[in-house]
Nucleic acid binder design. Structure first.
Lengths: 224, 224
DNA sequence: CTTCTTATTGATCATGCGATCAACAAGAAA
DNA sequence: TTTCTTGTTGATCGCATGATCAATAAGAAG
């Protein structure tokens, strides 16, 4: 049983294809690698596919090392969720900053969130709602990220009220409502794409009715 | 090791508390028992808590028996989902039948679905959306039940158009949209109850905007 | 070169899952 | 009563999970 010695020798000989031991890295580097791998897995296969062995395999490392860098798998899952969702929030929020009027910003918000290019993130949201039932750390992150989203929407709605473009007495609730609608419609699209035409414009009209905006004021120019 | 013989004797002696072997039942009876137990587990702990051992324990039966009555656990999960959701659809649909006008029916639909008394069913929906990714039988049931819901809503919307109470060119899409909104808002309530007031009336106004109904025509009499 | 810190390994444990099936026994039929 | 159908058992297999930790070796420090 000098098997161990042999494989060690093999390793030093065939350098490229089979790596027997992962290169030593800075804790910060390795932690980032692990977080990135977990992130990719979540977007491709869902949050529940984040396992010690799964992540370790993607990084090319022993499963124990993943555990070494994370207090718990639940914490890793929560962290991945927060990272994915926070990035989306900031990205979309940034898109709005350049637009002059609240109507345009709200219209862009709806258009962007409903264009179907973020369904992978929607899947993460939906799974997190369920997983949060058994992962307290994740549940906390979910609430936090929902609040962040709500704040973005509320800011737009309040600006619209101030500018006289919208007319509603309860911006916070309306913001929650808009978010809920968007989430629900996207979750639906996760399962059923067909049968619904003009998803974006239907929602725009619904939101117009809710914020008291003029008909078609939230639609992109020239669209229906 | 006459343990077996002993416990058998024990059984015949202490009749009430410890049942060593489950009473023999009709296949139909037993199958119903198992389905009911699985249903309860799903509503209390989620669809993913439906396991052979979990269900067997609740029925008071060996795990093998559950497997004996179901081709696969995935099928059991799909069946439980369909049963729970179909019951809700029929129940709510029945509620609408007694109402005279489409506006009242749509208003009642929104009010009923948003009153928070069906959050356990919402949790089932949300979990099914995610689980359907890895359970094809479940995914098929989800699509089927979504279609059933959509048909109920579409019928109301079309009746409203015919009666001149609503004004929209695309009843099917609007029906999908309403469902998506309701689901999203309920899923949101699963995680966050606070912060949102008048969920029902906000949604009612949004739907009014979407179906082209008069302001407040979907609100319950005297409410806001 | 040698020394020493520490990143990394991989076997291991306890637990849970779905599925399978020979063996058992309850209760109807003879 | 005895016979026989069949509902029921529970051990068992293979696989997957999270967590733990002594042992290893890479690579900086001396």
């Amino acid at each position: 049983m000098i098997n161990k010695k042999e494989t060690t020798l093999d390793c030093s000989v065939m350098s490229s294809t089979i790596q027997k031991r992962a290169a030593r890295k800075t804790p910060a580097e390795r932690a980032a690698e692990i977080a990135d791998a977990a992130r990719e897995i979540a977007l491709e296969q869902g949050l529940s596919a984040i396992t010690l062995r799964n992540v370790a395999a993607r990084v090319g490392v022993a499963s124990g090392l993943v555990a070494h860098y994370q207090p718990t798998v639940d914490a890793l899952v929560a962290g991945v969720f927060a990272a994915i969702v926070a990035e989306e929030t900031e990205e979309v929020s940034g898109l709005l900053d350049g637009l002059p009027t609240p109507s345009e910003r709200l219209g862009m918000l709806l258009e962007t969130l409903m264009d179907g290019s973020r369904l992978d993130v929607t899947a993460i949201w939906v799974e997190a709602w369920t997983l949060g039932r058994r992962n307290e750390a994740l549940a906390a992150c979910v609430r936090e990220q929902m609040d962040a989203w709500q704040a973005v929407v509320q800011r737009v709605v309040e600006a619209g009220i101030e500018a006289g473009e919208f007319e509603t007495s309860d911006a916070p609730s309306v913001a929650w409502q808009i978010l809920g609608m968007v989430d629900g419609l996207n979750a639906q699209a996760l399962v059923r794409w067909d049968g619904v035409s003009n998803r974006g414009s239907h929602l725009a009209h619904a939101v117009e009715g809710m914020v008291g905006a003029a008909r078609d004021s939230l639609l992109p120019a020239g669209g229906d």
